[in-house]
Design a protein around this nucleic acid. Structure first.
Lengths: 244, 244
DNA sequence: CGAGCCGTTGAGGGGATTCAAGCTCAGTGG
DNA sequence: CCACTGAGCTTGAATCCCCTCAACGGCTCG
């Protein structure tokens, strides 16, 4: 057993998942941050933590699923297929984000959600959210906050990553990926084909620009699918780009 | 306004705005469609209908406003300014849509909302939504539906209108504008500069492509800022474009 | 070791931008 | 009445950026 300090009066009464939720490092930023300890006790048996490898679908577009998910670690991408048949990544989710919220409305998932890195999720049945929401607590508001955050992310994706010169779009993408860096400061460096699906360009163009930025020492590969960024150089490059 | 004067002219014992709300042609599709007649009686005095000319800002980005709006007629666009300083239209709203929802969360408006056509709005104070939401009725769920719709619109904007050849993007935009056609079947035909801000292209390119489609009889101007579409030709052109 | 995936680089062509010049049309004022 | 203006739209020509097609190298894995 762990030497983790647990209040004595509760030591034997708590479910392992309840302890996990109480100790969850993203709890304050996550959906159930508004719940108290009593609330946590009610939910522990229904929430499942799961870990996924990269490129594993969390859910598919069109299916009405029974659960939402909180991202505890890693990056998840949302994909759509255009009328012409090619994939387009429309948004990313990272630590603390809630994904698959449309399931709460009994709607089919709007996108395909796929892991980009190793990902840790908390799977939350929608029936649980329904119960907690009926109490008239802070949960509905918290859910609306999540929706607004997702909307904001999608709109800024349009504004920042969908127009302008290819080099500038790549730079802005790197800036965004820096927000999802892990504790060691390593970012997820997408495959060239994924960069293409995010920024609306071909793999060749993505490759040329990443190579160029590597030669400029803005980004340097670090492990498989990882990289380190020189934030100073990145901001400098962006400033030069936006000066036009 | 805490104490409003009770109208003396209550011929049918209902406030004029209550009658207006009850008779509202978008009510079933709009936010308060879930309220019964009694609920409508409670809200009538607080909701204001307003009519705006084209190119009038409804609210600005950054300011935390006291109201949300339901679009009763016309088209509203959401704009952002990129780091380089140019405008980008990230989403449209039309009849039945709710706009400015972030005000409910006491957050500043995320975008600049500007009328594209003559627009009729219903202005709803956020305090009113708060009161109605405390009853634990269907309103919170209805609000979440609105958020999801907005998110869906923003994501499909990325997927459909932000990549591919310029001609295809213009065709898809026309298809989308057809959803906002008025009762006479006339669509709003944006200025070329607005098309550019929506699709990430220059005014010249937008002009060339619209002219081309006009020569192909896919679209024909109809009144100021208006047009008629040949939907058959439009779908045909899209099919040819997506065949690649 | 060959197969396959991924990344890289080159050459050439095409689509969009840039720069520039006219155009229509409504509003203005001589 | 008509020149004058300015905004929006259109079109042309030259340039450039990105796509397409192609070849090659590194790497993993059967």
């Amino acid at each position: 057993m762990s030497a983790h300090p647990i209040p004595l009066y509760r030591q034997d009464e708590r479910h392992p998942q309840a302890r996990a939720c109480a100790a969850c490092e993203v709890r304050s930023a996550a959906l159930f941050g508004v719940l108290d300890e009593g609330g946590l006790d009610r939910i522990h048996t229904h929430i499942a933590g799961l870990t996924l490898e990269p490129d594993i679908p969390v859910y598919g577009r069109g299916s009405a699923g029974p659960a939402v998910y909180t991202v505890r670690a890693g990056v998840v991408r949302f994909e759509r297929t255009t009328a012409r048949g090619d994939r387009r990544i429309v948004r990313l989710a990272g630590r603390g984000d809630l994904i698959g919220q449309e399931a709460l409305l009994r709607r089919p998932y709007a996108d395909e959600a796929i892991t980009c890195t190793p990902v840790q999720l908390c799977r939350i049945p929608i029936t649980l959210i329904d119960e907690l929401g009926q109490d008239g607590g802070a949960l509905p508001r918290e859910l609306m906050q999540r929706w607004q955050s997702a909307l904001d992310a999608a709109e800024s994706w349009v504004a920042e990553l969908s127009s302008g010169l290819a080099r500038r779009r790549v730079l802005r993408l790197l800036l965004r990926l820096a927000d999802h860096a892990d504790e060691a400061g390593t970012i997820w460096l997408p495959r060239r084909e994924e960069i293409g699906a995010m920024l609306g360009m071909t793999v060749e163009t993505a490759s040329r620009l990443v190579s160029q930025l590597r030669r400029e020492a803005v980004v340097q590969p670090f492990g498989p699918r990882g990289a380190r960024l020189d934030m100073t150089a990145l901001h400098e490059a962006l400033r030069a780009e936006d000066a036009a």
